[in-house]
Amino acid sequence: MKVAVIQLNVGENKSKNLSKAVHFIDEAAGKGADIILLPECVNFFGDTAEIINQAETIPGPTSDVFSKKAKEHKIYINCGSIYEVADSKYAYNTSLLFDTNGEIIAKYRKIHLYDATFKDRFTSKESENIRPGNKLVTADTEFGKFGLSICYDVRFPELFRSLALEGCQMIFLPAAFPQYTGSMYWETLLRARAVENQCYIVAAGQYGKSYNGNVFFGNSLIIDPWGTVIAKAHEGEGITMQDIDLSFVEQVRNNIPTFSHRKPEVYKL
């Protein structure tokens, strides 16, 4: 299968953001993509006070756009994530996977919320506007079994190990990593998650300056089960593609059968 990651610089104009996403989806499909991953907050990134106003129901206007494109091109599309209505004060940060018929076959709500403070750099308080999810989400396809995650989730290896134990051969991670933390550990964490779970990691990031002057790291990656970066985005918006054979996952797991070597009775909390 051919996997494409789309790197975008998302702003406050929802229609402009979706127009760019659709443009790159059409281009990737034209190049033979079977599966497409977009970044976190694919249709809106702006003032946190606007999150609730921009949140949508699912199905809704944004999910309909991706559903139609998946059906039109007969491809799988992971929308990255969008804000989903939770209640009058909160939204969910939700990732959707569409199948080749345009049906939503997986819906994952971000579990780990990014609350962080870097003095004189930036502060994030995702929990002020976002409710966390509480469920692992996987999807069975004709290519294999996929797992879903979002951005800050990458710092929590328990989630990725749980997805691997559920049988996932490839895990998606759409993100909007800031430049500062991204330069420190984005690739390191992604490669670690791939190595320790012997699976493919497909990560699509936002790139460039955001609405308030903060800068996204970009560096969208596709990583194989040995932890090798087999595709990496250039600077800027665009598409990065890679052929993947999921049978390689089983080969690696047979070479070093770490799952059968686990001792959960020892390190269970």
Results as ranks from 00 to 15, higher is better:
residue 6 I to Y: 06
residue 11 G to D: 14
residue 14 K to M: 15
residue 15 S to K: 13
residue 16 K to T: 12
residue 16 K to V: 10
residue 20 K to I: 04
residue 23 H to K: 14
residue 25 I to Y: 02
residue 32 G to F: 01
residue 33 A to M: 04
residue 36 I to K: 06
residue 43 N to E: 15
residue 43 N to A: 15
residue 46 G to L: 10
residue 46 G to P: 07
residue 47 D to S: 09
residue 59 P to A: 02
residue 62 T to P: 03
residue 67 S to W: 02
residue 70 A to L: 01
residue 71 K to T: 00
residue 72 E to C: 01
residue 73 H to F: 04
residue 73 H to Q: 05
residue 74 K to F: 02
residue 74 K to Q: 09
residue 75 I to Y: 01
residue 77 I to V: 12
residue 80 G to A: 09
residue 84 E to T: 10
residue 86 A to T: 03
residue 86 A to N: 11
residue 87 D to E: 06
residue 87 D to W: 10
residue 91 A to Q: 08
residue 97 L to V: 11
residue 98 F to H: 01
residue 104 I to E: 05
residue 106 A to C: 02
residue 108 Y to V: 00
residue 115 D to N: 15
residue 120 D to G: 00
residue 124 S to R: 13
residue 125 K to D: 09
residue 127 S to Q: 10
residue 128 E to A: 12
residue 142 E to L: 08
residue 148 L to Q: 13
residue 156 F to E: 09
residue 158 E to Q: 14
residue 159 L to N: 03
residue 159 L to D: 02
residue 161 R to A: 08
residue 169 Q to L: 01
residue 172 F to S: 05
residue 172 F to L: 07
residue 172 F to N: 07
residue 172 F to E: 03
residue 173 L to F: 10
residue 174 P to L: 11
residue 176 A to N: 13
residue 183 S to D: 14
residue 185 Y to G: 12
residue 185 Y to T: 12
residue 193 R to C: 05
residue 200 Y to W: 12
residue 203 A to I: 06
residue 213 G to F: 05
residue 213 G to M: 06
residue 215 V to C: 05
residue 215 V to A: 06
residue 217 F to Y: 15
residue 227 G to W: 09
residue 229 V to K: 11
residue 232 K to S: 13
residue 234 H to G: 10
residue 238 G to W: 06
residue 241 M to N: 05
residue 241 M to L: 13
residue 241 M to W: 10
residue 241 M to H: 06
residue 242 Q to T: 03
residue 246 L to F: 13
residue 252 V to L: 08
residue 253 R to I: 05
residue 259 F to L: 05
residue 262 R to I: 04
residue 262 R to P: 00
residue 267 Y to N: 14
residue 268 K to E: 12
residue 269 L to I: 05
